[in-house]
Write a protein that binds this DNA or RNA. Structure first.
Lengths: 122, 122
DNA sequence: CTGTATCCACTGGGATACTG
DNA sequence: CAGTATCCCAGTGGATACAG
């Protein structure tokens, strides 16, 4: 007695929020190129990563998709975009400090994928 | 001198495999319902989880999708399927011991999603 | 009960060409 | 260089009906 909370209810709520959170993550990171882009940028923190360079170096990535994925990532504060006043303007993309937080997660995905491939093959 | 391996090459290969592994993971776990199903089953290890019960308890999940997702998960050894000789046959689905390995990963996704939601709102 | 089959709308994503 | 616009296709996923 005393508390009116019913554990069942509280768990239900928490569970739903967890599902929403998981869905969020997959939505934000789950595109075909997003995690690849973040990993790419995280390996080139010191370089000038402009649009064309990225597209050239990630094989199969079209301008359309690159523009879209970068826009999405920027909206989620994972990537920063800065225009540089060169003769034809260039744009530099960088992963944000906050964006670096996804690296452990992507490592886990890599690890799971590797383990799973081994598991399936036997 | 002595070794012919070029670090650049070896890193390239590793990097590509990592990307493939990541893609694998997203493909296998990334469907709309897969992680939800695995979490659902992991919370009901002691129950008889038959098709209809699962569909009833996961809101919005159609028979078609449930069948498909379960089949995929079974192919990847994450879920087991066993037919029971009841009057009209029933089928019990369980998460495999191996399937339990995805739970940490899904926890990470949940955590990242929660953190991110907090991050974006401020 | 356990699914399959069918139809259909929406979206992701590729190819190509074009603008500022 | 940095994107946008357009077209187009394959896959996802919902609704409903049906079959074993």
């Amino acid at each position: 007695m005393g508390t009116i909370d019913i554990d069942g209810n509280r768990q239900e709520a928490t569970c739903k929020q967890e599902l929403i959170a998981m869905r969020d993550s997959l939505e934000i990171l789950g595109g075909k190129w997003k995690l690849m882009l973040l990993r790419y940028l995280s390996n080139r923190l010191e370089e000038k990563n402009n649009f064309k360079k990225i597209q050239r170096e990630i094989e199969g990535l079209s301008a359309k998709m690159l523009a879209k994925e970068l826009k999405d990532l920027e909206l989620n504060l994972l990537v920063s975009r800065s225009v540089v006043n060169t003769k034809p303007v260039t744009v530099e993309y960088r992963i944000t400090p906050y964006g670096l937080n996804v690296l452990p997660l992507s490592e886990n995905l890599v690890q799971w994928g590797l383990d799973h491939r081994a598991q399936i093959k036997r």
